[in-house]
Structures are given as C-alpha cells and as structure tokens.
Design a protein around this nucleic acid. Structure first.
Length: 855
RNA sequence: GGGCGCAUAGCUCAGUUGGUUAGAGCGCUGCCCUUACAAGGCAGAUGUCGUGGGUUCGAAUCCCUCUGCGCCCACCA
C-alpha cells in the first residue's frame, strides 16, 4: 500500500507494473495444482517474422481477460507463450533481411557473416548457414515481441515459453511423427502434388487459395482417324505436349464413334475416354487430359490408369528433354524444342503461334477470368508435379476417419458456436490426406533415413527410424545405428530424408509442446486437454483441425475443450487489416498515445468472434474510463475509507444497501458470461454500472459520507463506498490491469490480480432484503432536480426551497428511504409527495422556488 | 452451386428464454469552473429496428420470402 497521489495519473503505470508483476511472480502457474483446479490455455504462437500488429493486440487481449477472470476465480492458470519461428515466412524474411538465399549444395562456412546492407543480388549460402541466420533473426524478433506482449499486460507465465523450432518442439514433433508412422497414420507416396515453383516445395490442400486470373479459351483442332477434326477448348495450350487422353461425356453423341484422336502440332495419338466428370456445357464439351493441368486431370489419370507425360519441371520451366512419345517423331521433337526450357508463359505464347501457323487454332482465343489455385503465400499459380511426399491421414481418403474427426469437432465447445460449421464444412470437403513434407530448410527435419541399394537407389518402403531417446535429430548430420558417417550417400549405405515438416505439422502440437509431453508427463497430465484454444477463424482448417487430428491419434481425445474464435480487425473501409495489405496500424504508437488499458478497452468491447472496425474513438473512451477510475477511487478513499475499516456490517442505510443489491446483480451477470468465454458483456455492464455509480450514488451519498447526517450514517456511506470500490476495481481488473492495480495499491495489500473474483455472497449480509428501487428512485428524482436547475440555467449548487413529487405509492415509499440523500445532493429544503394511481403520469417533479441563494 | 454470418439513431454497436414508452457510447445542442475528475460534469434532441408476409393478446426478438453486404467451401478443361 502507498499514499494516494494528489494528482492521479496513468503515466508510467505500464512500466512500473510490468516490472512489479515479474518480480512478484503474479502470473506464475502453480504446477502442483490438481487438474481440477487448472485452467490451461493453448496460446497461439504468432509467426515471429516482422512485427506484431493491432490484430494481435485485439485477440491476445480477449484471451487475457479470460485468463485473468479464471485466475481470480481461483484457478491455476497455465498461460504459456510460444513463437512460431519455423517455416516459410521466416525463410522469406531472412532472405530479404540479409540478402541471401539457401543453396543446400554448398558446404557450411563457419566464418560467413551477412553484409550490413543486403545486396541486390542474393548471396547463396549453405543450409547450416541459412538455418543459423534464421535462428539469429527470429531470436531478435522474439525479444521485441515479448516486450510488446508484456507492455500489453498479457498475463503470461514467461517460464513457459517455447518456439516451434526449439529443441523441445523438434523433439515433440519428431516423436509424434514416429508414433504416427508406427501406427500407420503417416505414410509416404510418390504422387502428383500441388507444387509452388518459386518456393520449390509441395503445398497442402489447406494452404491453397483461389485467385481470379485472366486467361483465354483456345479452340484447337484434334484430328480423328476419318480425317475430321474435333475442337477442344483449353486455357492451357502449352500443356498440349503432355496430353494423354481426350475426355468426353458418355452421353455425348460423339462418344459413340470417337475412339482415338491425334494431337495438333505433335501428332500424338491419344485415346478418347468417356467420363461423367466432363461438363458438356463447358468449352466444346470435349476436354484434353494432361499430366497435369489441374486436379481433375489427376483424377482421370488415376481412374483410367493413364500414362504420365510430364513437361513442367520443379523449377516451373518446360523440361528440356522431351518424354518418349514426343521424342519418337522428328516433327514433334522439333516443335517441342521450341518451348523446352522456357517458362509456362513463354511456352504458351510459342505454342499458340505454332497452332496458328499450322492452322490448328480455330478462331481467336476468348479471354476469360477464371479462378486459379495459388499457395496462399505464393505469387505464381501452382503447378502439379509428381514427387515423393509424406502424408498424415486426416480423413480425406477414409470415410470412417473423416466421420470420427467431424464428431470430434462437434464435441468441441465453440465460442461463438456457429464457428463449428467452418470445421465441419472443411473436414467434409477434404479430398486427400494431409501432405506434411516440405522441400525447405528451416523446419523440423523428418526423422528418417533410407537404405541405399547397390545402385545407390533409396528404399523408401522401409525407412530407418531413430531411437526415441536420440530426439531431436537431424538425418542430414546424424548417422543411423549400424552405419558409419562415410556410408552417407554411398551404394549400400544410407541417406537422410532431405525434407522438413510443414510448420503446421509442428504447430498442431502446441498443447504437447507447451505442456512438455514426453519430458514432463506429470505436468502434461495436469494440463491436457487444454481448457481453451484461442485463435482466429481463418486458421480453423489448418491449425485447429490439425491439432484435433494429432490429439485424436495420439491421445484419443480432443486437444482442448473450448475453441474461442476471435474476429478480424477491419479498417474504416471494412477491409481486413493485415500486414500484407499495408493497412495495419502499429500497436506501439497506440499504446503510447492512449495507454495500454485504453487500447485493451477497445479490444474487449468487441463481441467474441465478431469482425470489428478499428476505432480510435473507442480508445479515447477507454482512456476516459481509466482516468475516471483513478479519480473516483481517490475521492472514495479521501473519506478515510481503508482496507481495515470497510465492513459490510456497517452498511445500514437503505440507499447504501440498495446500491449493493444492484452491485450483486451486476456480479451475477458478469460471472457466468465470463465463464462462458464472453468478456464483452462483463465489460459493458461493469462500465455502465460504474458510470451510473459515479454520477448518482457517489453524488447522492457524498454529503452523508462527510458527516452531514451523523456518524453512523457516515460510516454506512463510507462502508458502502469502500465495498463497492473494491468490487468495481476487481471487476475491471481483467480489462484494465494497469489502472486497477494502481488504484488497488492505494488502499489494499498485494496486487488486484491476485484477489478473488467478487461474489454475490460477500455482499449478502447487506443485500438480503435490500430494494434496488430505492437507489433507482433517488437517481431518477435527482435527475429531475438537475434538469430543473439546468432548464432554469442555474448552477447545480443552487439551493431549492421546495420540490414536489407525484408518483405511485410503492415508488414514493422507496423514495422516502432515500429522501435524505436526495435532499443533500439536490440541495432541496422541503418535499411535497403526492400519491397518484398507476394509470396517471408518473414522476412529476416540480422545482418550486429558490429563495435561499445569494443574489 | 453449397454453407455461415451480418443488416437497430449521423457513426460504432448493445438489446439474454417474445412482454410496458427500443438502449449505450461517439458526434451534435444547451447549461455549469459543483467539496474526485473542465482533455471534466450535468442535461437535451435524434429511430418506418433492411423488404414483404406469417405465428401470437403482444415481434427488433420466432417462422417463411426477398434485397444488400461480408466470410468460408466447391467449381477451375
């Protein structure tokens, strides 16, 4: 406790309390707490590349208010912090930041230092050098992030911090993968895969997005054996050399007679195949199947067991060496040579010219806008290439598993509830298993080696797995049992799996990573399943679903019991605020300008799950509330109210007891809302109560608290003020941790954040037969007195000789119990109360005369 | 094409299982330096609750239709 300042201020509270909370371990998790007393939070680890933005402030505040409520409600709150530093965003940031690029063929250079300024042309560095720089930069970012999260007053226990590239995360991720492998839930397969030609990696279904791109239908002539032509419409004429069949709907009249066609330019004979997937209304109703133009091609290639004639390489260029079918004829090979080595766009231009020259392009290309699949982080359309990849089953190819995972989603409590539809919708629409391998560098390595046969060819059917006590491991430097290092890459030796796991394959294990599964199973048992998973809705299909999949396999349970889904921040044009759009606001400036509590107020005002406009006006309102709390607290304490003297037994005046009854109703509304993950309602109701309390109750009783009605009446007022102040400060603590701890420190021991959440029962001694109407009537009539003075253009301290009130009997009776305070607050000398029947107009107050004022 | 959400004061939004005269804040207008607070306080004005229909004694609230906006998924020849 310390003295009440003469001039209360919010200046400096953030720095002061951040330090004090740390020193006092205010938010330390009690790991000895029984499972029943724990509330565990599966904190979203933000991507540690760049800077935190106002969206983080928004959603982290939401979770923090819940955490603080649960802590005050007596739970041991497990609130860890993680940083998602592995994966592509980091790689990309490191490339730009240092001006480097990773070339795995280079040897490690222990002396390499990136230039101070990134050079225009990226410097190639080895994989170990690259990873080291990734780690260096993410560590710098994480320090800056931690500072902001602390300044935001997020009540993290910083002893439970993790990164998704750290040793523990790698260990958990690899161990879980090996468990999946041993149970048959993970498998590798050589198959056509969506491929990003810039990042040169496979991508998963969950990371796709459609973008509308201009294209054009080209009508091109295929040749039938009888000399007639069949027109085929395509947007990708450059893939003509990879055509393996022509597809036609079974009910198309042409299907009866057509059996084979020859492709234009190359003259390759391809079969005509009937398939119901063909849309007779689209294009010419006949379509070529290439390996591979889109996912429908892959379907046809599978169902009809078609050959593979790939022409696009992993670098996105047309493969230089033509496949056998093209190479078989000189003219075909010659035509192909003109596109070999070119990119897709150049190849298309050339192929269209060739078709024009040969007269096989019919009419002009018809421009269209059409959706094209992109990697969500990529800039060029995805191609489909065949490669060996690792998958984890997710129900995309197994109806029973899919049903079980949908059932998991339905068993989860969603806040708000309608968010469950996104989950069910997504899982129901899966069309393949989860592709987890990535041909990248900064990630958790797949913990596998492969035996090489006498030819040096790997045996993928029986990977060599490490011992679980040797995790985390890196197969590119670690050597499997029974081999020596010099056998790496040699016939009869071994090779490490070159790939890393997708970042979601690790972040899907945040409950296990944060809970130290496998290394501290006692802790894990107290935490898991987590009580709360906070996250935004656009990653339900990725982070949330993936976490459910992993827990389903490993623990046969949900990973968390409640999913609390936050909305987005919208800019004034109602567009999502995001770093990439360049419309995001820097949170640091806001925190400095309005104060943390004010920014938190804005965030907590938004209903759970609702997209919310960025609104600085709300922050001003929040700041006003924080300042009001300081002033009102100082005023109440100026009556000599102290921690020691506040006693519910002293509350005898009906006005005070009426006020506490209203306060009890407030608690009764806030507590269940908070317990149901709704922070916005408690804030709204508490704020409304508090302003009303200041405007009316405080004004009504201050004269009595000064002693105008004798010592006992003063004691009652002071006790009422003190008790209410304590409750209000605690109710606001989750939202305004700095201002509330400041005012708490003026008169109470310890931090407000370590106090018990207010209960109705702590007030019941004074509220048992209290009537809320007493204070309502007092406030209403005081309002009329004020209005009378305002309309008479008089000051509020203008005295009134007499006032008359017309109202019904019960309301007058309630007013009688407060008449002393209304008289004092309104400076009214005498009252005339007239009873009316309920059907007459109620509350008529006449302010009659004002003779006793100085002139 | 399928799914989800939203539509209430000039603006941002509350409105819980249907129930008196639909609320708050911002903004606006007026008054007041009142014993916490003038970067404040007090008071005031402001609504065909998106459209059309239905259920009901009674609908912002429940049901149906339509319109507009946003998001997710599918389609990608």
């Amino acid at each position: 406790m310390k003295a009440i300042p003469d001039k209360p201020t919010l200046d400096g509270v953030e720095a002061r309390f951040v330090e004090q909370w740390e020193a006092d371990h205010t938010y330390a998790f009690d790991r000895t707490a029984a499972r029943a007393d724990v509330f565990s939070i599966d904190t979203p680890p933000p991507t540690a590349s760049g800077s935190l933005h106002v969206g983080h402030v928004f959603s982290y505040t939401h979770t923090d208010t819940i955490a603080r409520f649960q802590r005050m409600s007596g739970k041991a709150v497990f609130y860890p912090m993680g940083w998602d530093d592995n994966g592509l965003p980091t790689e990309r940031r490191v490339q730009n930041y240092y001006g480097i690029t990773c070339d795995p063929s280079l040897p490690f250079d222990p002396t390499f230092e990136p230039p101070a300024e990134p050079s225009k042309h990226a410097i190639p560095v080895s994989r170990p050098n690259f990873v080291a720089l990734c780690e260096r930069l993410t560590q710098e970012d994480e320090v800056a992030y931690e500072q902001l999260v602390r300044q935001l007053g997020i009540s993290i226990d910083w002893n439970y911090q993790y990164t998704t590239i750290g040793a523990n995360a790698r260990r958990v991720s690899q161990r879980m993968f090996l468990n999946n492998l041993s149970r048959g839930e993970a498998y590798s397969q050589e198959a056509p895969t969506l491929w990003d030609v810039d990042f040169r990696t496979a991508v998963a279904q969950a990371e796709l997005e459609d973008r509308d791109r201009p294209g054009a239908f080209h009508d091109i002539a295929f040749h039938a054996p009888d000399g007639t032509d069949v027109l085929i419409a395509t947007t990708r004429p450059e893939l003509l050399a990879s055509c393996v069949a022509v597809m036609i709907h079974p009910e198309d009249p042409r299907a009866a007679t057509l059996t084979t066609l020859r492709t234009p330019i190359y003259g390759v004979e391809v079969p005509v195949i009937k398939d119901e997937l063909v849309d007779r209304e689209k294009g010419t109703g006949v379509v070529m199947c290439c390996t591979f133009g889109d996912l429908t091609d892959v379907t046809w290639w599978r169902t009809h067991n078609l050959p593979t004639r790939a022409i696009i390489g992993r670098d996105g260029l047309i493969i230089r060496e033509p496949h056998d079918t093209i190479a078989a004829t000189e003219t075909a090979a010659a035509a192909y040579a003109e596109i070999a080595g070119r990119n897709v766009k150049q190849a298309q231009t050339r192929v269209v010219e060739q078709l024009r020259e040969s007269g096989e392009l019919v009419g002009e290309p018809k421009p269209i806008q059409h959706p094209v699949k992109f990697f969500e982080k990529g800039d060029r359309p995805l191609e489909i290439v065949t490669s060996r990849q690792w998958y984890i089953r997710n129900g995309g190819r197994d109806a029973d598993l899919r049903a079980a995972l949908i059932e998991r989603g339905n068993a989860l409590a969603w806040h708000p509830d309608h968010m469950r539809h996104r989950y069910v919708n997504w899982v129901g629409g899966l069309n393949g298993d989860w592709l987890i391998s990535r041909q990248r560098y900064f990630g958790v390595p797949l913990p596998l080696w492969y035996r090489l046969d006498g030819e040096g060819q790997p045996d993928y059917s029986a990977p060599i797995v490490p011992y679980s006590d040797s995790l985390p491991m890196d197969p590119s430097s670690d050597v499997p049992d029974g081999f020596t290092a010099d056998q790496r890459g040699k016939p009869g030796g071994f090779m490490g799996d070159p790939d890393v796991m997708d970042t979601w394959a690790t972040s899907s294990l945040t409950p296990q990573i944060a809970g130290r599964w496998g290394t501290d199973d006692d802790l894990f048992a107290r935490l898991f399943p987590m009580h709360m998973r906070p996250q935004s809705h656009e990653i339900i299909r990725t982070w949330l679903f993936a976490t459910v999949v992993r827990a389903h396999f490993e623990h046969d349970s949900l990973p968390f019991m409640n999913a609390s889904i936050s909305g987005w921040i919208l800019d004034p044009d109602r567009k999502k605020m995001s770093k990439s759009k360049g419309n995001a606001v820097t949170p640091i400036d806001l925190l400095q300008q309005y104060g943390t509590d004010a920014v938190r107020y804005w965030a907590a005002s938004a209903r759970p799950g609702v997209d919310t406009a960025f609104d600085e006006a709300q922050m001003k309102v929040g700041r006003k509330l924080a300042v009001k709390l300081l002033n009102a607290s100082k005023f109440v304490l100026s009556f000599g109210v102290t921690h020691a003297t506040v006693d519910i037994a002293n509350v005898t005046d009906p006005v005070d007891r009426s006020m506490l009854a209203g306060l009890a109703a407030l608690i009764d509304e806030c507590t269940p809302a908070f317990a149901g993950f709704d922070y916005a309602r408690p804030l709204e109701r508490t704020e409304a109560f508090f302003w009303d309390w200041c405007d009316n109750y405080l004004e009504l009783v201050k004269s009595r608290a000064y002693g105008s009605r004798g010592p006992e009446a003063a004691t009652s007022a002071q006790a009422g003020l003190g008790i209410a102040l304590s409750v209000i400060q605690r109710l606001l603590a989750p939202f305004m941790p700095f201002a509330t701890d400041e005012v708490w420190s003026w008169w109470q021991p310890g931090s407000v954040h370590s106090q018990a959440w207010p209960t109705v029962s702590e007030l019941s001694a004074a509220t048992a037969d209290a009537d809320p109407l007493v204070l309502d009537m007092a406030a209403e009539i005081l309002g009329h007195i004020r209005r009378g003075k305002t309309e008479a253009k008089r000051s509020m301290k203008w005295a009134v000789d007499s006032a008359e009130v017309h109202d019904t009997a019960p309301r007058l009776a309630a007013f009688q119990q407060a008449i002393h305070d209304v008289s004092d607050a309104g400076l009214v000398a005498t009252w005339t109360c007239t009873e009316i029947s309920p059907d007459q107009e109620k509350i008529v107050v006449h302010v009659l005369a004002e003779s006793s004022n100085p002139t």
